[in-house]
Structure formats: C-alpha cells, structure tokens
Amino acid sequence: MKEILVLAEHRKGELRDITLDLLARGQQLADKLRAQQAEGELTAVVLGQDVGTFADTLSSYADRVLVVEEEAMRAFNSDAYQEALAHLIKQRRPAITLIGHTAFGIDLAPALATSLDAALATDCIEVDVEGGAFTAVRPAYGGKARMSVLLRGDVRIATIQSGSAPSPSPRATRGEIVSIDSPLAGEIAYKKFLEYADTSAGEIDITQSDIVVAVGRGIGDPKNIPIVEDLASALGGVLACSRPVVDKKWLPKARQVGISGKTVQPKLYLAVGISGAFQHVSAIKGANMVVAINKDPKAPIFRVADYGIVGDLFTVVPALREKILKAKSGK
C-alpha cells in the first residue's frame, strides 16, 4: 500500500491535459503517503500502441512509467483497457488508482471497479488520505452541494474532475520506464471502434474571439436569444452557449462551450443564464475575466466569476447593452 497508480489518457496521438491533473493529484497523495507511512510512489500507466513519446513525457512526472503496447488499445477501448488495467491492479495492489472523469474514464472506471470489487468515487475534486483511509470530495446536486465520501475496502479507484488540480512541475530526475507484455488474451469481439466524427464543425469559430458572450438555459425560449446576441454584438464579441441550448437545437453545436463543446480562452467570458456546471466552466479556465449574470445567487457560476450580477437577465442584459452602446458612442 504505497503506490499511487495514474492512468494516462491520450487520443489521436496526443496526451490529454487531464493526465497532468491526474499526475498532480497523484503526486500529492504519494507525498502524503510518504509523510504518513514513510513509503509512497507515483506510477503512471500508459496503454496503447506506439506510445514511447508519451512514456518519455510521463517519466518527468512519476517515479515509474508502465507501458503496455497492444494494437487493440491504439484507440481507447474500455474493454481492452479494463482487462489490461485489472491485470496490473491485481498484480501491483496500488493504494489507489486515479483515472480522469472524462468520456474515457466514465466508460472505463465503473466496469473496472466492479470487476475488481473496488470502491469507486467518480468526478472527484479532492482526494485525501489519512491513516490509510482514502476520502474524496465530489459535487452533488448539479454542483450546488458537495459530498465527502470514504472509499471502503483496499482496492480503490477515483475518477478526477479535469482542472481540479494545479499543474505539476517536472522533476529533476526522470522515473524509470518499464515495458510490460500485454496481458490481453485475444480480440475484443463484442465491441468494435469504427471511427471518430467531428460534430462541432460550423461556420463560426468561437475560439478565435476575444470576447465571448454565452447564453444558457436561463434564456427560456429560443426567441429570446437575440437579447443576448445583441449584447454580444454591442461588445464586438461572439455568441456562444451552454449545452442545453444545443440539445434543444436553439443554436448549433459549433457555439457550445464546455468539455463536449469548445474550449475558449477569451479576454472576457460573459455567461448569461448559465448555472456553471463543471462540464461548462472547465472549458473557460483560460479566460482572463469571467462575468456572470444569473438570477440565482447560489448558482455555481459565481464561484468562478470575477464579477457577478445577481438579477433577471431580461432586465440586466438590455440595460447593460444600452450602457455599453452609450459608453461607446460617448467616445
């Protein structure tokens, strides 16, 4: 019970950012273990085909990198991954295994945990260990509340919310890279990856604008969208939106901000009638300034906003627009 196992995530030949979050979180836990019981190490696992460069990168952040190369794992396949990872966990008995709470982790972790009879805490924003007991803090009720949970038993897995840990800094000495034979018995016949499809292509690229004004479900009705659109044009920015607006087909997918939409890094991100679910706000981390307009003072969006106005968007937005236009013409 000294090893923290971290699963690297990659797609289309690139290591994904969540991997750094996991390494940072893993490092913290390894340090704690070392402090509490003298032993603690961080091991990164990378599964796939032709992943040598990933292993190199990872070795700057971990004591050890385990590499399993296997054609069946070139693209993410939860069943192949599950088999390989289950084998490693059974063999190494890590204190805890960290996986990203991503489309990839959501597919993999539950079945993996079940097959190992492990405790699984998903979507964690904090993981802690004290006297050998692992606890996690995770959001509940759409981010309006949080719960802290204890992971029972001695096989533990946690999926980590992206962006919930500070970026790790590379170490002076690299960890060792260990190549492991693929434990996969044969082909996975019941699930077959076919291809990727990009759904967010569209006429507009919201990532290129310095000012992004995003509208959420609070707009209530598609016919009200021009209210926010007018504000965006007054500011010289683009109109973006949260997912429900796309689900309802009020705006095209190309305008969706969030983990399943676009990640934006504007100077100003103005969120109107958006509650601030993590899937949304984790994609606006790079914004210089976040401003939120929401009528619910408890809306989680205010936790990430630099400035907030609590009020009805139908009064605030037109008023704001008028003042902006006045200020602009006044010059």
Partner: peptide
C-alpha cells in the same frame, strides 16, 4: 463501496465580486 460522510453546501463565491 462508498460511505457518505458529509454533505455540505460550499460558499457561494470564492473568487470574484458580486456587484
């Protein structure tokens, strides 16, 4: 497999200013 320890509501604002 999980034992709920505590449910809580985090503070409303952490970062910025409510006008």
């Amino acid at each position: 497999r999980l034992e709920m320890q505590r449910l809580f509501v985090p503070p409303a604002t952490q970062k910025g200013e409510i006008l």
